[in-house]
């Protein structure tokens, strides 16, 4: 899922300081699962903003709603009635949701309440970890199911570098060296010889370096 973390409330408040009435739109997708932008977080943020503004003697009116997903036009469409009389929309979705709202309601001021951080999973309740670098050309079959693109701080394809010690990355004792993990796993699988192959340079044009990407499935297109 996409992991996002709410921005400091002061920053969000600053984005809407000129507004009298705002719509806060939560998202029932990834950000609900990672507990940062679902129904509850949307209401907490609305309440916090109202309190802040009342303390400033400049009350703010809020409307809250949580869409099934903000990354699908069909779930944004029904917001139209709510959008009409607000001065701004605060999206608690990932960056995709913010942009989908801005695209659909092009005459509205749409602001992000979250910092979209990474694609990952939950480690334990309340802890999420990055697992995929979205490089567009998966190599996990060559690295024992551990991604060096995102889990190695240097994205090294022929690791580990000389900064790996005691299983940790040179950047921090709290970060596992991805290549130590890869080594351990390949060893356990009896596939260490695979690590002797020189991995060729990566084709980054399949990643974001090639410009915004698009995926098309003609067989499911309608019309």
């Amino acid at each position: 899922m996409i992991i996002a973390q709410q921005k400091p409330i002061k920053d969000i408040a600053a984005m809407i300081e000129d507004c009298k009435k705002v719509l806060l739109v939560g998202c029932a997708g990834c950000v609900t699962v990672c507990l940062s932008g679902g129904e509850k977080e949307t209401e907490v943020l609305a309440s916090s903003l109202r309190i802040m503004r009342r303390l400033q003697g400049n009350p703010l009116e809020t409307v809250t709603i949580t869409a099934t997903r903000q990354c699908d036009p069909e779930y944004i469409e029904p917001l139209e009635n709510l959008v009409k009389d607000v001065d701004a929309i605060i999206s608690l979705a990932c960056g995709v949701g913010v942009q989908y709202l801005a695209e659909r309601f092009h005459d509205k001021w749409v602001v992000p309440a979250q910092n979209t951080m990474f694609v990952g999973g939950s480690r334990t309740h309340g802890v999420w970890e990055e697992r995929c670098g979205l490089c567009g050309d998966c190599i996990l079959h060559r690295t024992g199911g551990i991604c060096p693109i995102i889990r190695c701080s240097k994205s090294i394809l022929n690791g580990p570098c000389g900064g790996s010690q005691y299983g940790k990355c040179e950047i921090s004792k709290d970060v596992d060296c991805a290549w130590q993990l890869i080594y351990d796993r390949m060893k356990a699988l009896g596939k260490l010889d695979k690590l002797m192959e020189i991995q060729p340079p990566k084709d980054w044009s399949k990643s974001r370096d090639g410009g915004p990407r698009k995926a098309i499935r003609e067989d499911v297109m309608i019309g």
């Binding site: 719509l23 029932a28 129904e39 609305a46 309440s47 109202r50 309190i51 009342r54 303390l55 003697g57 009350p59 703010l60 009116e61 809020t62 409307v63 809250t64 709603i65 949580t66 869409a67 099934t68 779930y75 469409e77 029904p78 917001l79 709510l82």
Partner: peptide, 18 residues
Amino acid sequence: SPLRKNKAGTSRKEGDVA
């Protein structure tokens, strides 16, 4: 509570989930 000094009535509204 400073909120009571600036009491401007509650201004919450809830929309329905689509």
